[in-house]
Simulated scan of single mutants.
Amino acid sequence: MDKLVSIVLPVYNGEKYLAQSIESVLNQTYKNFELIIVNDCSTDSSEEIILKYKSQDDRIVYIKNEANSKLPKSLNNGFAIAKGEYFTWTSDDNMYHIDAIDTMVGFMEQHTDVGLVYCDFNMINEEGEFKYKVTVGNPEEQKYKNTIGACFLYRRSVAENVGDYDTSLFLVEDYEYWLRISLSYRISPLHMCLYDYRWHNDSLTLTRSTEVEQSVARLHWKYLTEYEKSDMPENELFEYLDFLMKYCNQQSERIRIKLKFSLKHKKYVIRELRKLFSRIKSK
Rank of each mutant, 00 (worst) to 15 (best):
S21M: 07
Y240M: 03
V162M: 07
H97C: 14
Q56F: 10
L204E: 09
W221F: 15
F121W: 12
C248A: 15
S42G: 03
V61F: 07
K83D: 09
Y154E: 13
Y240L: 01
K260Y: 08
E236N: 07
Q250D: 13
F130L: 07
K258Y: 14
I37W: 04
V5N: 02
T210S: 12
P10Y: 09
Q142M: 15
T103G: 05
K31F: 00
Y227S: 03
V134K: 10
C119T: 02
L224G: 00
K133T: 14
D2R: 12
V216Q: 11
C193K: 00
V117D: 05
V117G: 06
Y185N: 00
V212F: 12
F261E: 14
S262N: 15
Y96G: 12
K264M: 09
N161R: 15
S91T: 11
A80H: 12
K131P: 05
E109V: 04
M192Y: 15
L18F: 04
N138E: 15
S6R: 08
Y177C: 03
I280C: 11
L116K: 03
P72G: 00
L190I: 06
E234P: 10
G149R: 10
D174G: 06
F243C: 08
F130S: 04
E66L: 13
Y227H: 05
E85F: 14
N68W: 10
M95K: 07
V212H: 13
D99S: 06
H191C: 05
V38E: 01
D102E: 15
N201G: 12
Y17A: 03
D113K: 09
Q251L: 15
P139G: 02
L35N: 06
E126P: 09
G14P: 05
S188L: 11
Y62D: 01
A150Y: 11
E226P: 01
D92C: 01
F152G: 07
G128F: 01
E160V: 13
T103P: 04
E226S: 11
I81R: 10
K31Y: 01
M192C: 14
M245A: 08
P10M: 09
F243T: 04
N39P: 11
V61P: 01
P233T: 02
D93A: 09
S182E: 02
